[in-house]
Nucleic acid binder design. Structure first.
Lengths: 219, 219
DNA sequence: GCTGTTATTTATCAAACGATAAATTGATGG
DNA sequence: CCATCAATTTATCGTTTGATAAATAACAGC
């Protein structure tokens, strides 16, 4: 059918609605997260505003410049993703290391295997090494060092002396490999084994196997 | 000291030099690779031209638009990085799977652990899933399926029946983990175990250990 | 219902962007 | 030395960008 009234794809100027500053700010950040996760941090402030249903200059009442908005996006994406319940579960020695970290990684990947999080993290790592370095530090302290220590304890090797860089590389390979599994699946949309729990289990087994005392390593 | 002659940080209009089109095109792509690896594919054509030592409109004599330039950057970065000698070495059954893939990954990482390659690949994956999917397919066919098959052969399990998706996940975790080791080291500049060969060795051991027949898996 | 506060919009700027047209200059062959 | 061709530059266009100033309108308290 022929276009009747020349809509011009502009919304009908949606009645102006007044919000408390805190709520408006949240809406803006939400819009920015969505846009930047799609096109990267070069997405325009006008597109952010359009998604938030406001005009572009209003954005500058809440953030002095674009960089502050990006900083707010970092905060939204990176902070408060850690569930405090995980801390106890990871160190509950009533369960095996395998069972504990299996449960943890199933929960953790459910949080982190999200196209928005994965893409924003990717863009952030390339744009601003500082923020991603900080995140990697958190991963090391909260997950990987614990894995090494708990495994030591399980093998009766004592868990008090400090974890070395070399000891962290195996856990890092697994953690990084799992993250890339998420990217292959949720960013690239590739055909992968869809059994996430199974992939986690295999990854953990690989680590536990080579740390086992007298394993026939290297076959 | 006071600035004497107001340099204005513009180069002194560097005498115009005429190049055969093929050579000029190469210089432009080289400049584009360098710029885009730093700031992403939103880097401006003016900055590309500046790095290539030419004016911006000249760029449009060699590439009809910016997208074609980006396509040329993809080609430069992704193609011709595979060394044909690797093919034979990977399937030389006179050596153990461990030795073969250890040697291969040491050579492969030397090619791929390059800030320019790592960053361009990162930007490309986020910008254009299509190109990165293609690259992942190459990795699967040229490296990971071979690893699975050669390991099967080494264990006397036969190597002719097709490799399943599930079988590929463990190699993928290791491969992805190694790539992320490169990113932590060369993009983020983090403190890592600098013994690349050692990290590769550990990663391979983890795979070989869990594929070993009666290993005491899971400790 | 009036008034004051402020959240929001309209109008606008200067700079940077991708891209095009026309003028210029270096090289080559006669 | 001159003419031709094409590689390169100058000049420029229309759009989009981040950001600012001034005008408008929604809501709260009286």
């Amino acid at each position: 059918m022929p276009t009747p009234t020349q809509t011009l794809d502009e919304e009908p100027a949606a009645k102006r609605r007044r919000l408390p500053p805190a709520a408006r700010e949240e809406e803006i950040v939400t819009a920015a997260v969505a846009l930047f996760s799609e096109v990267g941090f070069d997405g325009s402030t006008r597109d952010v505003a359009r998604r938030a249903g406001i005009t572009q200059p209003l954005l500058y009442r809440y953030f002095p410049d674009k960089d502050s908005l990006i900083e707010a996006v970092y905060a939204r994406v990176y902070l408060d993703r850690w569930n405090p319940e995980w801390d106890d579960a990871l160190e509950n020695r009533a369960l095996s290391v395998k069972d504990r970290f299996q449960a943890f990684y199933e929960a953790y990947t459910e949080t982190v295997f999200d196209p928005v999080w994965l893409r924003i993290s990717g863009f952030a790592a390339l744009r601003d090494a500082r923020i991603h370095s900080w995140y990697n530090h958190v991963v090391e302290e909260m997950i990987l060092k614990r894995l090494v220590r708990e495994r030591r304890a399980e093998l009766g090797q004592g868990d008090s002396f400090p974890v070395t860089r070399a000891e962290l590389e195996a856990p890092w390979v697994l953690h990084g490999g799992l993250l890339q599994y998420g990217m292959r699946r949720y960013i690239l949309g590739l055909a992968v084994d869809e059994d996430t729990a199974g992939v986690i289990s295999k990854a953990l087994d690989m680590y536990l196997c080579t740390t086992a005392p007298a394993a026939l390593q290297g076959g």
